[in-house]
Write a protein that binds this DNA or RNA. Sequence first.
DNA 1: ACAAAAGTGTTAGTCATACACCCATGT
DNA 2: ACATGGGTGTATGACTAACACTTTTGT
Lengths: 234, 234
Amino acid sequence: MSTVIFTLRRHPEQDRPAIVLPLVRRTRDPFEGLWALPGGWLDAREGLDATASRTLAETTGLTPSYLEQLYAFGDVDRSPTRVVSIVYWALLRADEVDAQVAAHAADGDAPENVEWFAAAELPELAFDHNTIVDYALWRLRNKVGYSRIAHGLLPDEFTLADLREAYEAILGRRLDPANFRRQVEGSGTLIPTESFRTGSHRPARLYRYNQDVELADRGPLARLVQPAASAESR
Amino acid sequence: MSTVIFTLRRHPEQDRPAIVLPLVRRTRDPFEGLWALPGGWLDAREGLDATASRTLAETTGLTPSYLEQLYAFGDVDRSPTRVVSIVYWALLRADEVDAQVAAHAADGDAPENVEWFAAAELPELAFDHNTIVDYALWRLRNKVGYSRIAHGLLPDEFTLADLREAYEAILGRRLDPANFRRQVEGSGTLIPTESFRTGSHRPARLYRYNQDVELADRGPLARLVQPAASAESR
DNA sequence: ACAAAAGTGTTAGTCATACACCCATGT
DNA sequence: ACATGGGTGTATGACTAACACTTTTGT
């Protein structure tokens, strides 16, 4: 069981955010010393989703805003000892990650052997994890085109530019601000607030996500899959 | 490991084809007597795709024209003894199924405890298999909208009406023949032949699928997943 | 001749894209 | 004042859906 965890990070020198994900350095064979996806072993008394949530919390200390099964990998040659690995992928809100990282830095108890990498510039990973990340990114890119999933990367309140930059980071290309505004406003998923973000140039209106709308349509799986995210009802 | 196997069947009394799938009657607890998806156990020396192909062949005696992993189900309450089941779904060409069924009928060695059911009128199934079939149908419906997957249900040569009826069976609604023709002709996946199917009214041109085009874009998984269908290169 | 499916043409509506333009703010 | 991002307006082309129409066969 492994999880590809995505969030958005704004590099200090750059002005545009990028997709980043946490990796864990392996401390034993096989692939000792290489970076790998965080994961854990399936507990006999635990559902698959619950296991993914748990291992994710153990790595990042956070609850994902979105969690979905990616694929089950089980080729005989993917590891010296053939292992079937069920892989999930998740989105974390950028603000929660920042808060968590800051808290760790203050306490001096940053998790050992965990590091965040830009998804576009990954090193060689253990097992078939490079392929797995590629597939997760592909799924994310596809899904952003027909769902509201990008909101899973943003805080409660955000500007249209924030949202657009999230889309741009995922898709890897610039979007027309004017057209983007109309599309997203017409989708009925945004609730405008009366607040504005000031600081540079003309203030931008802050929006809030309409929690009545699911981030993604999971079809007949929706009633089966109940992530422990009852915290964010509405 | 289970597989949802779809094919198209034209009922004698009806003129339109419908989606059907084979089920196996359980001969032991749990759920003895109920119908269930065909499946088998994972072999230690076998990849997941290979296992799906094998169990599919054991049930139908056929090689699928399309095979894709559906989902890994592993809720603790899905079975008295909690089992993680990796489920695949597959498409079979209608003509191959007909030939196989006819051969069995002639030999009198029709497989025991296997029966084909219309996907729209399933009985109560064992485990969570009703949900699994619903999900497979949902995936099929979605996929038919952005891929050429419906060709996996058809023989080498087919008319546009055949193809349209396959789409209609999957989507559950009628399509405009004129618009359907233009869309599919413009997609570049069809090769017209010089043959026509006669028999009723004006003869219809037969087409052939362009094997250079994949039935569906599998993204970064494409190079990993190599179904043993090298028979149909070109 | 007529019914029915094969196949062509035409039109209206919707949507994505490009881009010109005005608005409001910090410097 | 002016640069810059916020926000509005508008034209164009692509694609979808609806449907009238012609063609070709079997009966």
